[in-house]
Design a protein around this nucleic acid. Sequence first.
DNA 1: TAGGCATTGTCTCACGTTGTCATAACAACG
DNA 2: CGTTGTTATGACAACGTGAGACAATGCCTA
Lengths: 329, 329
Amino acid sequence: MSTQREIARRAKTSLKTVSRVINRDPLVNQATRARIESIIAELGYEPSQAARMMRSQKSNIIGFLADGVTTTTSSIDLVRGAQDVAWERGKQMMLFNIERGASSAELAESQLAAFRAEAVIYAAVFHQAIDFASSTTPHVLLNCFDSESRHPAIVPDDYRMAYDLTEIIFQRGYRRPAFLNLGSDVFASGLRARGFLDCAAAHGLDLAEDVHTAVASPAGAPPVFMADQILTVLMGKEAQPDLILCGQDILAMDVYFVLGQMGLKVKEDVAVASFDNLDPIAELLRPGLSTMALPYYEMGRRAMELAIEGSAKTDIHRLQGSFVDRQSF
Amino acid sequence: MSTQREIARRAKTSLKTVSRVINRDPLVNQATRARIESIIAELGYEPSQAARMMRSQKSNIIGFLADGVTTTTSSIDLVRGAQDVAWERGKQMMLFNIERGASSAELAESQLAAFRAEAVIYAAVFHQAIDFASSTTPHVLLNCFDSESRHPAIVPDDYRMAYDLTEIIFQRGYRRPAFLNLGSDVFASGLRARGFLDCAAAHGLDLAEDVHTAVASPAGAPPVFMADQILTVLMGKEAQPDLILCGQDILAMDVYFVLGQMGLKVKEDVAVASFDNLDPIAELLRPGLSTMALPYYEMGRRAMELAIEGSAKTDIHRLQGSFVDRQSF
DNA sequence: TAGGCATTGTCTCACGTTGTCATAACAACG
DNA sequence: CGTTGTTATGACAACGTGAGACAATGCCTA
């Protein structure tokens, strides 16, 4: 790749004039500008970011630490949202797949320090509380929050999403929903249980007995669904549930099959609702899964906006989900 | 962030000695080295990549242009594989989500030129032929290939994968498989049809009538599965197929539901096989989907290896899949 | 005492870019 | 005519790092 010096030589002009053309300084004669621009186009020249970073002491780089995120289909939208904003604002996003606590996390942080990243977004797979030490570069937490709130955080409003979804369920006439919740290691599960129960209480019902933990996450192993056992018990009762609310779409998928094996039809015999709107599963299930979409894309955007604008506040930003209505209840 | 000058000041030593410590020059006294290193640790100093890039005229950056890839769950492994290798070799990977032909593609290429990327990997969603102009920086094509082979390419060996999978199908005693293939816009579909037919021919069967296009990709819209219509016809015939081979796992998922609605049980009444091993669908389907896993992770790795090593050859590298046996046939 | 070696320092340059300041040519004005 | 302002251009330094050439210091050994 050539340099401004080379261009100046060819255009028989000074280095500075080339620089002016590139930086759109109006103080350049039309003819000179045209001449220089044609040489630039001819050479396919691009100004060196490295040199610009040196000179300006600004990197325009935002780091994105994805803690297992890109291996998990549900949250690629976090990355997409963040990248779209970075793009719009002329920033460069650097993505790292890491495992928290492992050496990959440290290495990524030092790489980002070496590039003089202006901010870092740390994204977790599941909504959770983490203990995140402060650092010289500002950090924004995504889909998680610092237990001592030293950093701004973007999380889904799980309480509200559960409340709203439950409200829709009641509005449609269901009265005996059972909630197959996520494991208690996921922070969202507690919030959702409260949202579910509060909404039920507002309708004069106590459903405390109807919340079940349906997902176990053994260390180092894939999560295990317990839909099978739970549904066997529930559907054997006299007062069968009329709707199964699932903590995530892949659990709902499992529920579809378990119900099928029991000879029960989704919606006709028992309705199903869920959280995630996971592409392509929610769409592909038959009947299509009516589910509360998590605002991952928007969360990614907001995180990047905060990272770029450098909010000094350490607020927790809770984003709303949106209900995607299909045919499962 | 501090500089080497600052460290030298604090350590009451010269700039040169600090530089020697950082660049592991052995000609430094143990005590001095320890003193300087402790100051480096204390300040959390990292040498500026920008300055290093300037000085060394090496960026250590490899670009990764993901043409819709990160929005598609099946091929995140391409990214993971590439990033793991970059990581291992001390390179920095820069990821861009682009749309080919759109301005995003041009912008990404100029960003990469600005960072003086040493090579660029271009990854496509589906195995396809594309017309890719040559450029100053070397490009490696991933999951696609240049119609004029000006660049090395990494693709899955679709012919072989189809042949091998069909062989397993015959070995297990199936004799009337029907192939619900991908659309003809996907290069893989032709290769797989040939692999399927060649293997059948080796077993003395002509199955040309049993290959069906089951996926339509209208421009700008999500793909449409035609499993419904095709299966209605096929299963109504006298000579019903004994196995449905699907072009991808999400099509297989659709097939599961269509069969269910017809009152047919997967494996008992009709077996199902597929390509992809898409997480988490293949695992979650009941019965678990036996499928030919595409070697995406390994492809990502190989692409990055080629990008780093700078192979001058423009070969097409075909990688083998591996059969994941579950319970669907 | 001289020579050898280990350690550290000084000085200089180069990488590509851009901000500051200076210079040149020329027009407008009193 | 001299002064001021405008437009166009150029010279130079500095960002942080790394490397070469070479000198200086101190300690050890012959």
